[in-house]
């Protein structure tokens, strides 16, 4: 059994009087992938934002690599944990070239060798070097998401938080991005947490899945159990039925 990379225990997040995450706990082994499925408003993205440090109004325990995290993170934290957002257009600065976007994390962390690292990062996500001095609006949706992944990986993190990374993309591009994520995980021994509403996408990438509804994680099960229909909670069964129903090609 690989050592535990991520340990979330009784995570609670509040927006004013409204508790949107109500005591969520899960563990992810190093090099493993954990999927969180749920509908909008289930609190699945909020869990991710609390883990990434974007939202500091949480209680409970979040530990990464054995170290408990506080509300405020130091710079070193952001070298170990990175995030990829849903909308590849909204997550890239509209007025900066790809080169500038990719060099920013390196400048912040004082990493030298910027030139070589950017070239390597672009090659790793299979982007042509001609894309380097373009603006985001000159690239396609899939290329933009590749840039976002390259930016997340350029500071060489161990954990990647993926917030619906393919739901804004066409299905053919989705396949390319999912393959890329699988390759990168293997090559770099990354740990993933993938949030999505799409059961097929989640089970494709993650052997372990948590189901959220109304801010609670009502069930954790393996992807195999989910496939074979061995679910405990009715909401999981409902989501599964809808997904299976659509897959049956007439």
């Amino acid at each position: 059994m690989a050592p535990v990379m991520i340990d979330v225990d009784q995570l609670r997040v509040r927006f004013g009087d409204n508790e949107v995450v109500k005591g969520v706990s899960f563990q992810v082994p190093s090099g493993g992938s954990f999927g969180i499925v749920g509908e909008s408003g289930s609190g699945k993205s909020t869990v991710l934002r609390a883990m990434s440090g974007l939202n500091s109004a949480w209680t409970g325990r979040i530990a990464i690599n054995g170290q408990s995290l506080g509300a405020r993170r130091d710079r070193a934290f952001f070298r170990t944990v990175q995030m990829v957002f849903q909308d590849p257009y909204g997550s890239l600065h509209p007025r900066q070239t790809i080169d500038r976007i990719l060099s920013e994390p390196l400048l912040v962390h004082g990493i030298s060798d910027i030139e070589r690292r950017i070239e390597k990062a672009l090659a790793e996500v299979a982007l042509p070097s001609t894309a380097r001095f373009r603006y985001p609006h000159q690239l396609s949706g899939g290329q933009r998401q590749r840039v976002a992944i390259a930016r997340a990986l350029i500071s060489e993190p161990e954990t990647l938080l993926l917030d619906e990374p393919t739901s804004a993309l066409d299905v053919s591009v989705q396949a390319e991005i999912l393959n890329l994520l699988a390759d990168l995980r293997e090559r770099r021994h990354l740990t993933y947490i993938l949030v999505s509403h799409n059961l097929a996408v989640v089970t494709h990438l993650c052997p372990q899945v948590g189901v959220m509804i109304g801010g609670e994680m009502v069930e954790q099960l393996s992807a195999d159990d989910l496939r074979s229909g061995q679910t405990m909670h009715p909401h999981t069964a409902e989501l599964r039925a809808l997904s299976v129903d659509l897959e049956e090609v007439p």
Binding site: R73, F77, M83, F85, D87, S91, H93, E104, R151
Partner: peptide, 13 residues
Amino acid sequence: NSDYIAACRLTGA
């Protein structure tokens, strides 16, 4: 509150 500013914050800047 845009994602690209969130991404900047996540670089640790």
